[in-house]
Nucleic acid binder design. Sequence first.
RNA 1: CGGGGUGUAGCGCAGUCCGGUUAGCGCACCUGGUUUGGGACCAGGGGGUCGGGAGUUCGAAUCUCUCCACCCCGACCA
Length: 491
Amino acid sequence: MAKGLTKRSVDYSQWYNELVIKADLAENSAVRGCMVIKPYGYAIWEKMQQQLDKMFKETGHENAYFPLFIPKSFLSKEADHVEGFAKECAVVTHYRLKNDPDGKGVIVDPDAKLEEELIVRPTSETIIWNTYKNWIQSYRDLPIKCNQWANVVRWEMRTRLFLRTAEFLWQEGHTAHATKQEAIEETETMIQVYADFAEQFMGVPVIQGLKTANERFAGALETYTIEALMQDGKALQSGTSHFLGQNFAKAFDVKFASKEGKEDYVWASSWGVSTRLMGALIMAHSDDHGLVLPPKLAPIQVAIVPIYKSQEDLDKITAVVNPIVAKLKEKGISVKFDDSDNRKPGWKFAQYELKGVPVRLAMGMRDLENATVELARRDTLSKEVVSIEGVDTYIAELLDIIQENIYQKAIDFRADKTTEVETYDEFKKVLDEKGGFILAHWNGSEEVEKQIKEETKATIRCIPLEGDKTPGKCIVTGEPSEQKVLFAKAY
RNA sequence: CGGGGUGUAGCGCAGUCCGGUUAGCGCACCUGGUUUGGGACCAGGGGGUCGGGAGUUCGAAUCUCUCCACCCCGACCA
């Protein structure tokens, strides 16, 4: 057990808070609700970005950048949209400071009041559709498929590192299409991209589905989501993709001339994932020793710790380790040889465990004599002594095995924590005693959804796209239900 | 934004109720030495606007008011 890290079984929430800090991922800043992402945490985010960016480009998207500030009037053009975001917007009212005439410091210059106040973007649909208006005249200008990597601000009451912060980093894709069908296909393509990323790179299995009207993005006709299950049995919405219909085109008057010469409004989608994915990554795999990172996203995949008494010993170890490092790098594996002498090996072992490094090698004089190295796996905490000969190939294969093992463990956990129920009593019992995902029939009404939420704190995470589609009876009203929907308590 | 809690060295805390020498302890840090296969040991050393401001008092970490930040629980949310 890592020194000072609260056990998950004692207080899961505290375990998470401590782990983020101790593993050097992020910390709170001087600004309320805003975090500092530290180099190690940012390195993981960069790996996510890199992969996602590649996947976006493979699906025909281009990166662009739109302003941080949005004129206040833009936000109000789409009624549902403004209603959804108005409560959590930061507003810029002035553009200049001046020296405080009454003493030290500076004050806002009252003479520098903006004619029209600017909103710090909580999302960019409005500024982007205002821009798209100028880009689109005919069907020949379509589709437009832009993505931007940006920060956004949503003035949250209660914040938690990575899971909910007032400012966060994300990407937002915004696409414009000539047909409804094409916009829906885009929306579906992108939720699939997110699901693939979560599963293949983060090792986090997700359920794809549709949000209920209640949980839909403000301004969308349909919201697709990927829902992941955390180790404490709570769900985490990890990515969303929205079919916006013609709502924003109508709000910003974006029309195009079709091939037939008819004028019509443009169809839209938007989709995003944020630094919240870091929270999902941490909570899905990590244990009481610290982080467990999937090799594909680990900034350091292999750490090598020398064990020595004298400088001569270290020199001998270094001579053997260097070629191993070179071979690993040749295979594209990131490796750190930690020959710093201000920490003892035991400390380093604990530290690399805390930071979730997938594979650790230790080499001392005993290994030198036997031409071996001690290899420790972070995911299983197991150790074995292996021959130096061919260790690079062995590790390359092992990293794939670890990636797969982490994913499989998460799948097994979810399977164990997913329960199908037929009655409301059963629903409450499972939620109370076991938690996790619950599949149950629902009559499709907002009233029942709200009633369940008020009585149990559980919400409909999504109407799953895959899986059992057998009709049945609503657990609350007994009315007909087309298929079971996914319930859980959520972050 | 409501209810509760916390704020004292980089980190974790004691001292606060009941005001009174020079504000302590552990970890970390610096120096020297011994060590090094799972978070080393000994000796010496440095580091404090006691969260900020105002007040009460001869005297405030301690009492009062106020503001701020963080944590937990609720309502809202990626």
